[in-house]
Lab assay of single mutants.
Amino acid sequence: HNGKLCKLKGIAPLQLGKCNITGWLLGNPECDSLLPARSWSYIVETPNSENGACYPGDLIDYEELREQLSSVSSLERFEIFPKESSWPNHTFNGVTVSCSHRGKSSFYRNLLWLTKKGDSYPKLTNSYVNNKGKEVLVLWGVHHPSSSDEQQSLYSNGNAYVSVASSNYNRRFTPEIAARPKVRDQHGRMNYYWTLLEPGDTIIFEATGNLIAPWYAFALSRGFESGIITSNASMHECNTKCQTPQGAINSNLPFQNIHPVTIGECPKYVRSTKLRMVTGLRNIPSIQYRGLFGAIAGFIEGGWTGMIDGWYGYHHQNEQGSGYAADQKSTQNAINGITNKVNSVIEKMNTQFTAVGKEFNNLEKRMENLNKKVDDGFLDIWTYNAELLVLLENERTLDFHDLNVKNLYEKVKSQLKNNAKEIGNGCFEFYHKCDNECMESVRNGTYDYPKYSEESKLNREKIDGVKLESMGVYQILAIYSTVASSLVLLVSLGAISFWMCSNGSLQCRICI
């Protein structure tokens, strides 16, 4: 991952900044910058967002509201009850120091605090018919004063009620008058409520006091790749198909172990950190130390980045220098085999997901714990399936590479015959000098055995068991695999060879 928040398929997220979902939807004055928000790819909250409900109280069923919003990608904020005409018999300019803005008392931008007009609070009834052709999110509140005197001074009615009804919602609220500790300079409380109004449905408000009335509502448009994440990451000019709280993932790998919460087309989250597919040879310690064997393909974004291909070729060293050249036929066979294998694994496992966190309130801790156990169970199954699949494929890959290298080895052996000696570690020792032209003939299969047989015969008789390297004779190393990324691999195959001279070296080696 890149540690950044990015656009998702070209669409920017909605960053709530210092506000949370509650503050944004109710219209906390400190969240005025969010009022123009219309569309987004996903919503970003920060872990310690401080601006929620400015007048103390709870947004009821907040967790369910977050779940609903996680599939919303755009909205239209509109005046559901026009301020100047909807409440002619009531005062609608209630403000509070708890919702101060720029040093002055204020109130929510989407709600109206209705109080008595003169000395009376006549029963009010108002309704709205949803003609938007889509779901409408309606929010309101109920004020709970701290004393009967406060109730009387604001609403005149000691036994007030609030009723809200639609086809799918029907509740009646009565204020709970009680002494409470002071929070944000208030002994009173406000509880906030919401409902989704279906197209064509009607919502009716009736009250004799204590109503925090809707002013603006939201017509919602769903987008199934949307979601809500909690993150401290910063926004950058970048684009992605998959976003996590820790950063964007741009990967076609089937798995990731970065974060379980994802938005967009994302690899499946697994616990494993070692889900690797081999593309090189079986481990040979001396070669492995030099980083030549054991190439791997990573299938977990965050564990290993991208696929690494092994390729086969020849390396030689003689009086004229040293050089490398790919054996294109065996390399292409290996590439085709690995590509098919990788595609097979991805096809089997690479279903892209959006995974969002589930919200539970403080009273639902047991449910949250149960949900976590269920999620953990599914996660263990996914991890096991992934590891088992790759384990089985790896064994076949190792066998496949062994065969490829063996074929190259036999190709060289059949040409050199007794003009060189096998020394048991995949290397041959020449009994004759071999210049670049000679080396090329070994690589392309045109090695002239009779041409060098007499010199080889004489050297075999002279050496008589002495280690060949100390006599200045020449080696050919018969097994060799270097490691390159897919891009470098293609470039390498396009070149005939490249040279690395070893000044004054008397050794001649050709490596497979």
Rank of each mutant, 00 (worst) to 15 (best):
A484H: 06
N333W: 00
I300W: 02
N361R: 03
K467D: 05
N361D: 09
N444C: 08
C511N: 15
I249D: 03
D402N: 10
C508Y: 14
A386T: 10
A355W: 14
K433Y: 12
V491E: 01
E359S: 11
H316I: 13
L490Q: 00
Q332D: 10
E393Q: 13
N436I: 07
K462H: 07
W499R: 04
H315D: 03
L292W: 01
Y384W: 10
I263T: 01
E469W: 14
V278C: 14
E387I: 08
E265N: 13
N239S: 13
G306V: 04
S453T: 09
V342Y: 08
N336F: 09
I476Q: 01
W304L: 07
F360P: 05
G264F: 05
Y312G: 11
L281I: 04
I510F: 09
M307V: 03
L490R: 00
A334I: 02
A233G: 00
M500V: 03
A248G: 08
G321R: 05
A420Y: 15
A484M: 08
S486T: 14
L370W: 11
F360H: 07
T240E: 01
K421I: 05
E368H: 09
S453W: 12
Q317D: 06
N257I: 06
Q507E: 08
T262I: 10
A297P: 02
N436C: 10
M307D: 03
D327N: 08
D448E: 10
K341M: 15
A355L: 06
H315F: 14
A484P: 01
D376F: 08
F428S: 08
P267K: 04
Q475D: 15
G323A: 14
N419Y: 05
C238Y: 10
N257R: 06
A495T: 11
M349Q: 01
N333A: 10
N250K: 12
D327Q: 07
R460M: 02
G306M: 03
N283D: 11
S231H: 06
K372S: 11
E437Y: 03
G294N: 12
Q243E: 14
W304V: 03
T482L: 12
V342Q: 12
A334T: 07
R282S: 08
N407R: 11
E319L: 10
S251A: 15
K241C: 01
N232Y: 10
A334Q: 08
K433V: 12
H259L: 00
I263P: 05
C266R: 07
I263V: 15
N232S: 11
C501K: 04
K372M: 07
K329A: 14
T339P: 02
S502A: 13
A478H: 09
P245S: 13
L416H: 04
A326Y: 08
G337Y: 00
F353E: 03
V488I: 15
L403N: 14
A484N: 01
I512L: 15
I258L: 10
N283K: 11
L490I: 13
M439I: 14
A484D: 00
G357L: 10
N503L: 12
H401L: 04
E265T: 14
G424I: 01
F353W: 12
Y480E: 11
Q332F: 03
W382A: 06
E437F: 02
S453F: 08
Q332T: 08
L403A: 12
A233P: 00
Q475K: 01
K358Q: 13
V270L: 15
A248Y: 12
N444T: 09
G291R: 04
S453D: 01
N318D: 12
L506E: 01
I463S: 03
S344E: 12
N252Q: 02
I346E: 02
R276D: 01
D464Y: 13
N436T: 15
R276V: 12
G247Y: 04
Q288W: 04
I381P: 02
Q246I: 14
D376Q: 15
C266P: 02
L506P: 00
F360D: 07
A386V: 13
A420K: 05
L458K: 11
S486G: 04
G291S: 06
S486H: 08
Q320D: 12
N503S: 14
S231R: 02
K417P: 03
G321S: 10
L392I: 14
L389H: 15
W304E: 06
K433L: 13
A297Q: 03
G377K: 02
N404L: 10
S322L: 03
T262E: 01
V278K: 06
T446F: 06
A420C: 05
I496D: 05
G504L: 06
I476L: 13
I249K: 14
T397Y: 10
C438L: 08
A334L: 06
L292T: 04
Y449R: 10
S272W: 04
G294C: 09
N333M: 09
V278A: 15
Y452Q: 14
N340E: 05
N250C: 04
I479G: 13
Y384N: 10
G280L: 01
G445I: 11
Y409H: 09
K462I: 10
G280W: 07
Q328C: 01
F353Q: 02
N385C: 09
E395C: 03
N371M: 10
K372Q: 14
S344D: 02
W304F: 06
S414Y: 06
K411E: 14
S486I: 05
D399M: 09
E437K: 08
T273P: 11
R282Y: 06
N343E: 04
Y289C: 01
N418Y: 12
L493F: 13
D376P: 07
V483L: 13
K372G: 01
A420E: 03
A326S: 14
Y289W: 09
K241P: 10
S505Q: 15
V405Q: 15
Q415T: 07
M235A: 11
E301D: 01
G377L: 10
S485A: 12
L391M: 10
Q256E: 09
W311C: 12
Q256K: 02
G321Q: 05
G313H: 06
S330F: 00
D435Q: 05
L493A: 10
G323L: 07
L363K: 13
G472N: 02
S231Y: 04
N257F: 06
C434F: 05
Y452N: 10
L392R: 05
C427A: 02
S497H: 01
V345A: 05
